[in-house]
Simulated assay, not measured.
Amino acid sequence: MSSIINDTKLAAKLIENGELVAFPTETVYGLGADAFNAEAVAQIFATKERPTFNPLIVHIREVSELEKLFVEIDDALLKLAEHFWPGPLTIVAKKQKSVPDIVSAGLDTVAVRMPANQTARELLKLSGKCIAAPSANRFGMLSPTTPEHVQKQLPGLKCILNGELPKVGIESTVIELCQGEFKILRPGFITEQDLLKVLPQSKTTEANSPIKSPGLLKSHYSPRKPMYLLGKAPEYSTDKKTGFLAFSEVQEPEKYHLIERLSSNGDLSEAAANFFEALHRLEDSDVDLIIAEPVPETGIGIAIMDRLKKAVYQYSDK
């Protein structure tokens, strides 16, 4: 069983020595390694069973570290950093040749963000490294928001750092930045409307573009139990125990064996913060399948629905 520790200095030393550390950010738990140590980064892919065509996000502590990662640091990038960093925004831009190809999946771009979580920031400071880190889960499964979630999925991991727990609850917004314009690659807590207040240009991602960001596969964030959107479940035996992931007031609660309510008053930010935690509880319960209520696709609701659609994809009729 992997070890949960409270010693950030020890965790930083492990990063320095080319080992892996799971650590909290304000979004979810990440599985980190020194971004400039290709062998250490390769361990991330092996541990998660993650395909190497899926690029990683590099975490930094100071804006000055961008010089190690990006070819160009323009006014648009600095404006975004000033408004949203530290925070749950990941920026994709042209990378320096010194960034290992395994980090960027062989692309000429790299994804970078500056976490706001104090434990993550302390780990970055003490290690003195830029840390490449996807979510600390088995590839394609539910993202973790507690040390125990990491331990459940990656039991062989040497070090899971305890500390300030994630508050946002879903992964960062990812944008690609090019010539002062941005394209949203993955929706998250920071919305298009938030970004447009800083940069007035926006484009949508081309459907056939390479995977430049984590979380872009059709099936992702899935529980181990069958999961369907409300109204989309196939006919199933009434003796099956059904879990319900609810957003609004539940109609006919007696139909469900277990109900997880994302928000008591329809607050989308609260729903996002509780999203993965609620799904982990349903996954670990004795229910046979999970039904999820869609949320309004506005603001952060767009990001929640992005995760929901990916979570149910493998169980749905294609």
Rank of each mutant, 00 (worst) to 15 (best):
K183E: 09
L185W: 01
C178V: 09
H149F: 08
P144T: 04
L185F: 04
G180R: 01
P187C: 09
E164I: 12
G169C: 06
K158P: 05
Q151K: 15
C159H: 04
I160S: 00
G163C: 09
K158N: 10
G140I: 12
G180Y: 03
Q179K: 08
I184E: 04
G140S: 14
P147F: 06
V150T: 11
N162M: 03
P166A: 00
S172E: 05
L177N: 00
R138G: 07
E171D: 02
C178S: 14
C178Q: 14
G163F: 05
T146G: 08
P166G: 08
V174H: 05
P187G: 07
L165D: 09
E164C: 07
Q153I: 08
P166E: 05
P147Q: 06
V150E: 10
L165N: 06
I184A: 00
K183Q: 15
T173S: 02
T145M: 13
N162A: 07
L142Y: 14
F139G: 09
P187T: 01
L165G: 11
S143G: 13
G140H: 12
Q151W: 11
G140T: 14
I184L: 02
T173R: 01
Q179A: 07
E181S: 11
G156L: 14
L161G: 01
K158H: 11
I170T: 01
H149D: 15
F182V: 01
I175P: 00
K152N: 14
V150F: 14
L177P: 02
Q179W: 02
G163A: 09
N162C: 00
L157N: 04
V168E: 02
P144V: 09
T146E: 13
N162Y: 02
E181P: 01
V168L: 04
L161M: 05
T173A: 00
K167D: 14
R186D: 00
F139Y: 11
T146I: 10
C159N: 03
T145S: 12
H149W: 09
P187S: 08
Q153A: 12
K152P: 05
T173F: 00
L154G: 14
F139R: 08
I175K: 03
T145L: 07
P166S: 00
Q179P: 00
K158S: 13
E164V: 13
L161C: 04
P147R: 14
Q179R: 13
E181A: 13
T173V: 10
E171R: 08
G180L: 06
V174K: 01
G140E: 12
G163H: 10
N162G: 03
G169H: 09
L157Q: 12
K183I: 12
L161Y: 09
L165K: 13
I160Q: 01
G180W: 03
I184P: 05
